[in-house]
């Protein structure tokens, strides 16, 4: 079932259209920066965007920073929300279940396929970002890349930290994926499931900006998303990255569990 799900993911045009759309924003930003040379002042704007004008190799990180707060989670919510509800809508869920595909295996396959989509989409943004940076914004300074703390990072350090960033961004999306999957087992409408997930994301972002919600802050899903910037301090500041990872794993466990609790005995009436 997992193999079939992955194959279906790759074969579906929607997957590739979503990934293309995801790369549109970083591409536009890269072109604008290259044409105007007007970056945000250091310390303002999206992470790394002020640095890419002098160092194009940082653009994958800037691209991830651009899509992480909104576009990537929306894409994950859409794909995750469709996972079970889409089968239900198309009338294929009941045929999979009587095939028979055990419900646990079906749900695991769906989760794996959503995670595969997250990896694929994140990788695409990073690779396209790298190519764009190289083509439009130019090479790293010969002196090496300057870290957020001002010191210089060797190319090896940069590779390792970029890889860590990639892993962290994927981790950040696991919570979203699990929530979308949970909503997807609740409803027969994939749009409804996606919108429910996006609603939670927006609520989380709004609460982050509210002083009165401070006690909730450590538990909010979006709280630590941009902490990957800390990976480029010298030395690396782990606190928020570790907290963020733990938060995402907690969301994953809770919502994947809830999805199973609901789906295991759900009446499939469509």
């Amino acid at each position: 079932m997992i193999r079939v799900e992955l194959w279906q993911l790759l074969r579906r045009p929607r997957t590739w259209i979503t990934i293309a759309a995801l790369n549109a924003l970083p591409a536009v930003v890269a072109v604008l920066l290259a044409l105007t040379d007007l970056g945000p002042r250091p310390g303002t704007g999206p992470p790394f965007l002020s640095a890419v004008l002098t160092d194009g190799t940082l653009f994958p990180l800037a691209a991830l920073g651009l899509v992480l707060p909104l576009f990537l989670p929306v894409a994950v919510a859409v794909v995750g929300g469709d996972a079970v509800a889409g089968e239900s809508q198309g009338g294929t869920l009941r045929y999979l279940l009587v095939r028979p595909v055990p419900r646990a295996r079906l749900l695991v396959a769906k989760l794996v396929s959503v995670v595969a989509f997250v990896v694929l989409a994140t990788l695409a943004v990073a690779v396209v970002g790298y190519v764009l940076g190289l083509l439009l914004l130019g090479d790293a300074p010969v002196t090496g890349t300057v870290s957020v703390s001002g010191s210089t990072l060797t190319p090896e350090q940069m590779y390792v930290r970029t890889a860590m960033t990639f892993v962290y961004v994927v981790l950040c999306m696991l919570g979203v994926a699990a929530i979308a999957l949970f909503f997807s087992t609740l409803t027969e409408s994939s749009v409804g499931a996606a919108l429910g997930t996006i609603g939670l994301l927006i609520a989380s972002t709004v609460l982050l900006g509210l002083d009165a919600a401070e006690p909730l802050e450590p538990y909010l899903m979006t709280r630590h998303w941009l902490a990957f910037v800390d990976l480029f301090r010298d030395p690396i500041r782990w606190g928020d990255v570790v907290d963020g990872t733990l938060t995402q794993l907690a969301y994953l466990v809770v919502f994947a569990g809830a999805a199973w609790a609901n789906f295991a005995t759900k009446d499939v009436a469509r």
Binding site: R94, L97, V98, P100, T265, D267, V268, A269
Partner: peptide, 8 residues
């Protein structure tokens, strides 16, 4: 549906 385990 109950025969096929789709509905409990």
């Amino acid at each position: 549906r109950m025969l096929l385990g789709l509905v409990r």
